[in-house]
Amino acid sequence: MALSLYVDTDRWRAHQRTVLEQFPGLVPVCKGNGYGFGHERLAEEVARFGSDVIAVGTTYEAARMKDWFSGDLLVLTPFRRGEEPVPLPDRAIRTVSSVDGVNALVGARVVIEVMSSMKRHGVLEEDLGKLRAAVDDVRLEGFAIHLPLDRTDGTDAVEEVIGWMDRLRAARLPLETMFVSHLKPEEFALLRQQFPQTRFRARIGTRLWLGDHQATRYRGSVLDVTRVSRGDRFGYRQQKAPGDGWLVVVAGGTSHGVGLEAPKTMQGVTPRAKGVARAGLATVNRNLSPFVWDGKQRWFAEPPHMQVSILFVPEDAAEPKVGDELTAILRHTTTQYDRLVEH
């Protein structure tokens, strides 16, 4: 019995085709845990729809992916002097975000990232003159700009890209290929229309693999069910049962990513109020689990164990049975399944 990822393969692939049509020349991103599917599984999908390049997060991911994908490997983490050398084939392309990085990679295939409003990393405008003198010593595959997801100040993504293209052109740098991230389909189409001499390539991961939420579903198998009465003690810490009902042991624990949650940016009164309420409940050991039974998310009876979670299901709900599966609302990028079921 396992924590399983169920995939409606036809629906999942239909969504992929839609995204590929919206972004011609798309560069599929397969970083981290492979968006919940794993690198090998996504490499199969990329080969199936015929992309010539795949983007990975690190050199270590590229070293693994080279055995599963025969095309080019674009490493998104920028090169830094002194980093641990990882043997990679010539089809690997390094992202570089500084003039120093370009100077250190003589003869290598590189994509040069410019500093966007993300302010994460990238070549600055004042360094473009030095960059012009350095690019002749590398095999330049293009420039890249990584844009923010939200623009709360009302700025325009297309204008930001155009601004950088104007700066690169003024510095007499080649603009044959521009890699972009986090553009809407209409924004991408507008750039292609305005700059027909430049090939725009959208680097896309989340939208491509996880854009149709109904195409995938996590489910955890029920391993054991124990009847309890209010006040009965249970678990590692011998807490008291909050009422009459059942303790349900379900596949899926911390090793799967259950109970792990990335920090979120909260905007507006309602999300903040909910966050305060969740924090308050946690102080009295009330933590909502991601598992759904009988139409409701159920509470953890105690913090999740390494490979299982124990839930409390009150007696006013249907009694779970061993072998039942509970839908789990989990974040793909932090979850490791036991098995993948395609249907």
Results as ranks from 00 to 15, higher is better:
Pro290Met: 04
Gln307Asp: 15
Pro290Glu: 02
Leu281Ser: 07
Arg272Asp: 13
Ala273Asp: 10
Arg278Val: 07
Glu302His: 02
Lys274Asn: 15
Asn287Gly: 10
Pro304Cys: 04
Lys264Asn: 07
Ala277Thr: 07
Ala279Ser: 11
Gln267Leu: 13
Arg298Gln: 08
Lys274Arg: 14
Pro271Met: 06
Gln307Cys: 11
Leu288Tyr: 03
Val308Gly: 06
Pro304Ala: 04
His305Asn: 15
Arg298Gly: 02
Val308Pro: 05
Gly295Phe: 04
Asn285His: 11
Ala273Trp: 08
Pro304Ile: 02
Lys274Asp: 15
Glu302Gly: 03
Phe291Trp: 04
Lys264Leu: 09
Val284His: 08
Ala273Phe: 09
Leu288Glu: 03
Gln267Gly: 12
His305Leu: 15
Ala279Ile: 05
Ala273Asn: 08
Trp299Pro: 07
Phe291Cys: 04
Pro303Arg: 00
Asp294Lys: 00
Thr270Trp: 14
Glu302Ile: 02
Met266Gly: 07
Ala282Lys: 11
Gln297Ile: 04
Asp294Arg: 01
Ala273Arg: 12
Pro290Lys: 00
Val292Pro: 01
Pro303Asp: 04
Val292Lys: 00
Val269Cys: 08
Phe300Asp: 03
Pro290Asn: 02
Val284Ile: 14
Ser289Arg: 00
Leu288Pro: 01
Ala277Leu: 13
Met306Ser: 14
Asp294Phe: 00
Val292Met: 06
Lys274Tyr: 15
Gln307Thr: 15
Thr265Ile: 12
Pro271Thr: 06
Val284Met: 08
Arg286Leu: 14
Gln267Glu: 11
Leu281Val: 05
Phe300Arg: 01
Trp299Gly: 09
Pro304Thr: 02
Phe300Thr: 00
Thr265Arg: 10
Lys274Ala: 13
Phe291Glu: 05
Ala277Val: 10
Trp299Gln: 14
Gly275Ile: 06
Gly295Asn: 05
Phe300His: 04
Thr265Tyr: 10
Pro303Cys: 04
Met306Phe: 13
Lys296Phe: 12
Arg298Asn: 05
Met306Cys: 12
Met306Tyr: 11
Met266Ser: 10
Asn287Met: 10
Phe291Ile: 03
Ala277His: 08
Asn287Tyr: 07
Arg272Thr: 12
Val269His: 11
Thr265Glu: 12
Trp293Gly: 04
Phe291Lys: 03
Gln297Ser: 12
Asp294Pro: 00
Lys296Asp: 15
Lys264Phe: 06
Met266Asp: 07
Met306Arg: 15
Arg286Gln: 14
Thr270Gly: 10
Trp299Asp: 14
Ala301Ser: 04
Gln267Asn: 14
Ala301Glu: 01
Thr270Lys: 14
Lys296Ala: 15
Phe300Ser: 03
Val284Gly: 05
His305Cys: 11
Phe291Asn: 01
Val308Ala: 14
Thr283Ser: 09
Ala277Gln: 09
Ser289Leu: 00
Val292Ile: 10
Met306Leu: 14
Thr283Ala: 07
Gly295Lys: 04
Gly280Val: 05
Ser289Val: 01
Val292Ala: 05
Gly280Leu: 08
Leu281His: 06
Pro304His: 02
Gln307Val: 11
Gly295Gln: 05
Lys296Ser: 14
Ala273Gln: 13
Gly275Tyr: 08
Leu288Gly: 00
Glu302Arg: 00
Ala277Trp: 09
Val308Arg: 09
Gln307Glu: 15
